[in-house]
Amino acid sequence: MNSVVYRVLSIVPICFVVAVVVFSLMQMAPGDPAAMMSDDFASEEQIERVRRDLGLDQPVIVQFSLWLGRVLTGDFGSSLFSKIPVTTLIMQRLEPTISLAAGAMLVAIATAIPLGALAAVMSHSWVDRLVMTIAVLGFSLPSFVLGYGGVWLFSFKLDWLPVQGYASLASGFEPWLKSILLPSLTLGLISAAFLARVTRATVLEVLSEDYVRTGHAKGLAPRTVIVLHVLKNAAIPIVTVIGTSIAGLLSGVVIVESVFAIPGIGSLVIDSVLKRDYPVIQGVILFLSIGYVVVNLSIDLSYRLFDPRIEG
């Protein structure tokens, strides 16, 4: 238990470092939000007044202290432009991003693990080569190519799915599912490609272990050997890849969100960077960083489920 508490507490200094880095990057970035917010014809004095109103005229250390103090109380500030609290903006974007990430992960796991295991079981056969070719293709294809291709096929030719947009769960399960199916497939197949390769390599390694041979020798059904012995022992590298993929998906869905006009966290980051909306950039990046750290911590802790010998 102590080791778990230690691992959880280790997040704190990581988050502090992230906060310092995020804040420093914003200070170094070119562009001035006060000028962005002002009329094109605003005088220097007017821009200065806007800067003062925003607190941007304070020394950097004062700005950082004030910001950190507010963050510690859960207040990430408000957008310089829309005046909407950053937490509200993040909450508005969280559902689409989680839906998309979860959908993509489901697609990835549902396709990659069986196919990767199959390729390993039938290694060096045409099935193995086919699966690995598809995996290489999936890994190499840019997401926007898959996305536009999917739109052409499923939206225009088959008229099954919408071209763009996100329908929240509150609007009903069916519209929600329709809105995330194609983006999830696009994103999921890319993650699946890598996961399938890792699964194949790991399963192949486990298949050569003595206990697998023993399982076969004592007459266990092949399914039992693969599911109970092989996959369980191959789980740790696979779970690690799944974990890093989930963390990556939370922040790496920018292109897919853009292609399908899904208002998620990724597009919030891009929009706020282009506008130099400092509180939003800082808040979202800090939020994503914490999310990344928490997912990695959860993955670390989950190893104990697969291998009780691991102490944490």
Partner: peptide, 18 residues
């Protein structure tokens, strides 16, 4: 007012009637 950052997607959405 819908903001669709990817202009090709906006064009597809219009053609589809979305």
């Amino acid at each position: 007012w819908v903001y669709i950052a990817d202009k090709r997607t906006a064009v597809s959405a219009l053609k589809k009637g979305e």
